[in-house]
Design a protein around this nucleic acid. Structure first.
Lengths: 241, 241
DNA sequence: CCAAAATAATTGTCAGACATTTAAATGCCT
DNA sequence: AGGCATTTAAATGTCTGACAATTATTTTGG
């Protein structure tokens, strides 16, 4: 295995070195890196170059910097929330830049979401079911804006994946589903289609209450099919306009 | 909604401004940003500060820089590969830092992977089935190292998710599954356990050939259960040592 | 003993310089 | 006119040295 790119910038090389040290565990969460001046000495470069390297790492949330005496750069604790937020921005950008068809995105979204149904039916808690019921209430308000409806929809599905009681699964699913939300939001919702969606949400909650995996799964499948037809009719309307 | 942190560093503020411009579509893929000197003028800061901002964006693969006349910073095209690589490093770090139990990770991994079975059975191609058969051959070599066995295992599962024929789904699943690989690799494989795993891989391929969703799904479920027992026995062996 | 002030360490920012890279413009020779 | 070598200009990459701002610690004064 050869070195591939010996012509990378110094700041990138230094960032890579530190990143590797963190990933390999030579630097642990909370550890303080040497000061910028020391790092500059160690690597034989100027402080400006070290700073650019540190900014790269900060952009990935791998480190944070604190000012003042005994400040410096510290290895960050990466939280689920932080990691998810990063994943969402990356995925959202990816989908936005690659002209994904609505149907493909929709298929992926529901395929992913359905991976939690079995666990969710088994482990759902009253608290999460209540959260889902509350969102259904919200969605039923007649004068709700499209944005608010979508936001509540996201919250509903978020609660659904949390029902699986597996934080790793929640992290991946919430990130994937949320990243696709901008594509999902292409559709505008009529009162008729909202009613349809809310009915399916009710079916999901009922299925979870009864621990009936099949009915939850089929409600999600119906929701997927319905969302795709909604999307297609929106596209058709735009084409003939 | 208030501004939360008006005391963010200038380089972070400038990075945010440019990032927002990219995400909002005011800067398109391939567009060239103003030169560092121009950006410094526009924002009323020094070139060093602008450079730190640009390095932050480069770390997220949002831009790339080219040297020379008519070089500069260009908005990047985010590829599936690039996005997946970023997702894997973030997720790997997250899991490594949060002391995830083997069982929880395993459960999440297989739950996610099973989300592609229905589509995979429907759409599998001969090319991908062949790729999976080839990996099974590789895994059957008696003098294979544990690392090579794991690598082939990843390739096998990668081909499986690709069978679903949905690039968005492949992206999310491949990233999620790959991120959990380090945790999966805790286990060491005896000849006996390898044979067991290979048998299940064969069952998966056979199921896909016959477009038999249920048998693929049950093979994955068995594989999950077997992997968990393997992990537990490894833990037990370590505890009593 | 406590509070205020000085101190020191460290990051954040700036200004200017030089090195390096690269595409385009120029000039020269055939 | 056309092709090849050279020069030029625009840009990023790096270095140096300085100062500002922040903050934990130490010192000082009452």
């Amino acid at each position: 295995m050869k070195n591939a790119q010996p012509e990378k910038s110094l700041s990138a090389q230094i960032a890579d070195a530190i990143r590797t040290a963190i990933v390999d565990g030579r630097l642990l969460v909370g550890d303080r890196l040497p000061s910028e001046a020391e790092l500059a000495d160690q690597h034989g470069v100027s402080r400006a170059t070290v700073r650019e390297a540190l900014k790269r790492l900060a952009a990935q949330s791998l480190i944070r910097t604190e000012r003042g005496a005994f400040g410096g750069a510290f290895v960050n604790h990466l939280s689920y929330e932080g990691a998810r937020a990063q994943q969402v921005t990356t995925s959202t950008l990816l989908l936005g830049m690659n002209a994904i068809s609505f149907q493909v995105a929709c298929e992926a979204r529901y395929a992913l979401e359905r991976s939690c149904t079995a666990l969710a039916a088994e482990r759902r808690t009253e608290a999460l079911l209540d959260a889902m019921r509350t969102e259904i209430e919200t969605q039923s308000a007649p004068d709700l804006s499209d944005e608010s409806f979508c936001a509540s929809d996201v919250a509903f599905h978020r609660a659904l994946v949390d029902c699986a009681g597996n934080e790793v699964l929640s992290y991946h699913l919430a990130g994937s589903v949320e990243a696709m939300q901008p594509l999902m939001n292409m559709t505008t919702f009529t009162a008729r289609s909202r009613a349809e969606i809310i009915d399916l949400h009710r079916a999901i909650v009922t299925g979870l209450e009864r621990r009936d995996v099949a009915s939850v799964d089929s409600a999600l499948a119906t929701l997927e099919a319905y969302t795709i037809t909604l999307g297609q009719s929106v596209l058709k309307a735009r084409a003939t306009r």
